[in-house]
């Protein structure tokens, strides 16, 4: 039985500048289910990053409702949003955003430190294949390794939802697939809802749900019964 984790109802995000109005999100409504891999797909300027921002509480919608686990988050204060992110969310960025002066282990610890229900760091490092690199600094790692550290950091706090903003954008095909495989494995192992924002249509094939966006609107929502392994996807 699918459990709803996010419900969006008529969500708008509007920007005004010099009497020009831009609808970054235009009357968006959908539901997301727990434990799924969800891909938000769209070209540059389609509103997918804005979508990530409002879902994760980084930004507030102009109007509409966003319900997470039966709680409206659009009305939350700054403090409440911080707590919402602290307790529920993990983030993976295109540019890794590792702390240069912390080792691999410590970067992961930065994530686990937030959670009372943290996962074992050693175990996480094992899963991402970086156990032997735990005392290395980011400057000593390749791009793929850095992204794996970022994944480990995000997962270590045992989040309900993992937001991934173009996680393979800076990686080549091979490393990108490895990264996506990792996300799949984490999704299966910990039942973490993984939301991937990307412009790469190939990645949509591994998702349980694909939300296509364009010009702030949701163009289509597709549910995928037969997802494929990350290693088998083509590459755009």
């Amino acid at each position: 039985m699918k459990k709803v984790i996010y419900t969006l109802k008529n969500v708008m995000k509007t920007y005004e500048s010099f009497s020009e109005i831009t609808h970054a999100l235009d009357n968006v409504s959908f539901e997301l289910y727990k434990g799924q891999v969800i891909v938000i797909l769209g070209p540059s300027g389609s509103g997918k990053s804005t979508m990530l921002n409002v879902l994760s509480g980084i930004d507030n919608p102009t109007s509409g409702q966003i319900i997470f686990d039966k709680v409206n988050i659009e009305k939350m204060s700054e403090k409440e949003l911080t707590e919402y992110r602290e307790k529920n969310l993990g983030f993976i960025f295109q540019s890794y955003n590792l702390i240069p002066n912390l080792t691999v282990y410590e970067n992961v610890e930065l994530g686990s430190h937030l959670s009372e229900n943290t996962l074992d760091i050693a175990e996480i490092l094992e899963i991402v294949g970086l156990s032997e690199m735990k005392h290395k600094f980011p400057y000593q790692l390749s791009g793929g390794q850095m992204q794996r550290v970022a994944i480990a950091r995000a997962v270590a706090k045992n989040p309900k939802v993992l937001f991934c903003d173009e996680p393979t954008g800076a990686l080549d095909e091979k490393v990108g697939k490895q990264t996506l495989k990792l996300l799949q494995d984490i999704n299966k192992k910990y039942n973490t809802t993984v939301i991937i924002v990307t412009h790469n249509p190939a990645i949509a094939l591994l998702a349980n749900m694909v939300i296509k966006m364009n010009s702030g609107k949701v163009v289509s929502i597709t549910e995928n019964e037969n997802t494929i392994d990350a290693n088998e996807i083509g590459w755009a």
């Binding site: 702390i99 240069p100 002066n101 912390l102 610890e109 930065l110 430190h113 600094f137």
Partner: peptide, 28 residues
């Protein structure tokens, strides 16, 4: 721009057993 200086590495090594917040502050 990510390279870590010698002092930082030394501090990291020496403070391995310290609590996380302390290690973070000292590394910064």
């Amino acid at each position: 721009n990510l390279k870590v200086n010698l002092l930082s590495r030394f501090v990291t090594f020496v403070t391995r057993k310290f609590p996380f917040k302390t290690r973070f502050k000292l590394s910064l």
